[in-house]
Every structure is written in structure tokens, then in C-alpha cells.
Design a protein around this nucleic acid. Structure first.
Lengths: 154, 154
DNA sequence: TTATACAGGACTAAAATGGTACCCAATTAA
DNA sequence: TTAATTGGGTACCATTTTAGTCCTGTATAA
């Protein structure tokens, strides 16, 4: 289905929740309550988001989580990458040629182009967009005509 | 990683292989040899592609698999859907509201828009493109500015 | 009629995913 | 200084998904 994992979905929801009240720190328990998900799971998700530098945390009483940068500078691709790793459609489109089928494959290059277009799309959607309850108007025309595979395969 | 499953990857490679020689019927064993993958696995993949009406099969001696329609009319989205089911980023973007968290979620609509844009992108890539060894120039500018969620949520 | 080749389903093994629990570290406030 | 609060890290387990294999049946062509 080319689906996001459930944790990624949670991450997006939680990030959006924080983005709607960016001033205050949000405790894991409070967020879990707000989004109606089990506390330990939300907590795990938050930790991953901190590790990915999308959130900053403050321990102790009155502590909690805040956005590491403005919601407009956090993208859907960032959130997905935080939980699932970098966006890449195929094994071979993420790392250097560790696919020994490359010779017989014949579609690798083109998948990489598609992959890159997907990533560009996901990078054009920010947390502000996701958190907003009004519909996104995706602002950019994707530069897919000029996609180069160099940056991917290198 | 938002990655295709391995079987989907195989499916694309096999489809491309058939697309390069569209006149003749291709036996599973022959294809397995050509793409250097185990026969039973390729066979399973082929069966799924037949079920999805992307290939037609012919039993008996000299039988095998052929494209059900021209490569230019088979899209990446078709191939992915054949193996993984319909392209949808989140649980709730595929079926009717079977997500009881919708109330607290607050990002469902926007994920659906993103989902739709992804699908549009994948529908713009055909098997001809994938099978071609020269780089794709993705031909369409995505109509993402005018994306409506109606078709998805309905 | 026999060899070829797909159809369908059952089965198993392995891996990813999701969820939980536990204990430690840091901070704050009484 | 101590207690309460809150995140950090790790390890573990259950479940689901994925991948791969095998077996038996059926259609077709020579």
C-alpha cells in the first residue's frame, strides 16, 4: 500500500498537536491524552522525534516537549524520516550499490527518479500545512522535469 | 522508509522485462532466469499480476505471460496496487471512516491530499518509462494545486 | 497422450512492527 | 535536601506481515 507505519502516523498527529500550541511545553502524558493513544507508545514516538532533532525536550517538573524549529520549517519528509528512515522507494535507491541485481534489474535508475519526485513532494508539505485544519494548497510545482539522478546514486 | 515491498520491486522488474519483448509469451522459468530470482517467487508475483489484470497467461506448451495491454497504458501505480493494494499513505485514506481517532487526529484530510498527490505522481509513470533505459522525463505537471479530497473520502 | 506451463492454496520461516515495562537521569519546588 | 515530576534508554514480548516453498490440479499444444 505504500503506507506509512502506524508510529509515523502517530508522530504526525502528535507533532501537529504540539504545533497548534507552540509556546508551551507538552508532557508525554498530556499529549497521549489529547490524541487518545497509549502513553508508552506516544512516549516512544516522542523520543524518536527528539533524536531526529524535530523536538527538544526539557526534563523535570514543568518540562515536556517543544518544536525544535518553527512548524513551517519542519516537513512531512522530516517526520517520516524520523520514524522510518529516509524516504526511498527501493532498496537500491537509498544506499550505494548494495544491490547485486542491478545488472539484470534495468529499472533502478527510473525508480530512483520516481523516489526523488516523491521526496520532493513530501518536502513541500510542512508541519504548518498538516496542522492547519484548512485544506493544503501545495505551494510548489514540483521540478520533476529537471530531476537528476546524480544526487541519489552518488 | 516508505519503501516498496520486495515483491513489488520484483514485479516491476519482471514487468519491464516482459515489456521489452511484448510479442512473445514468457514462461515463469525464463523470466526467473532473466532477472536472476528464484522461480517460485517470480511465479507467485506473476500470478498476482494476472489477478490484477496487468498480465494475461496462457497455459500449456509454448504458453507463458504477456502484457494485458500496451506498456504505455500500465502505470507504476497499477503495479504497486497489484502487489500491495491501493496506494494510500494512512489507514484512513484508503477506506471509509474506520478510524475512530478521526476526531482527535486533525491531520487526516491533509494526509489524504498528500496521498492523492503521490498517487497522481505514480500514475504518471508508465511501464514504458520504467522499462526504458533512457531517463524518464516525467511528462505531466501534477495538478496538485487543485487537488480535492472529495474523491478520496467519498 | 504426454510434456509443458500456469492456477490455487497451504504451509513455514523470518523479519518488522507495535506495544509494554523497568530503571535511570535531570529538573524543579517545597 | 528531599520529594515529585518528567524525560532517557534499553530490553523484551506478542503480533502481524512478508517472503519463500511446495504440492496438487488443470489447460494446452505437439
Amino acid at each position: 500500500m505504500l503506507k506509512l507505519s502506524r508510529l509515523t502516523d502517530y508522530a504526525a498527529v502528535v507533532m501537529a498537536q504540539i504545533a497548534r500550541h507552540p509556546q508551551q511545553a507538552h508532557a508525554a502524558a498530556e499529549l497521549a491524552e489529547a490524541v487518545q493513544l497509549p502513553h508508552p507508545t506516544v512516549s516512544k514516538t516522542l523520543k524518536m522525534l527528539v533524536k531526529a532533532k524535530l523536538l527538544v525536550s526539557q526534563r523535570g517538573a514543568q518540562g515536556g516537549y517543544r518544536l525544535a524549529r518553527p512548524a513551517s520549517q519542519i516537513t512531512a519528509a522530516d517526520i517520516i524520516a524520523a520514524i522510518e528512515g529516509p524516504v526511498a522507494m527501493t532498496e537500491c535507491s537509498q544506499a550505494e550499490g548494495d544491490c547485486e541485481l542491478a545488472a539484470t534489474c534495468g529499472v533502478a535508475d527510473n525508480w530512483q527518479r520516481v523516489s526523488l519526485a516523491m521526496r520532493t513532494l513530501l518536502e513541500s508539505v510542512t508541519l504548518s500545512h498538516l496542522a492547519d485544519t484548512t485544506p493544503i494548497k501545495l505551494p510548489v510545482q514540483l521540478p520533476i522535469q529537471s530531476v537528476s539522478v546524480a544526487a541519489v546514486s552518488a
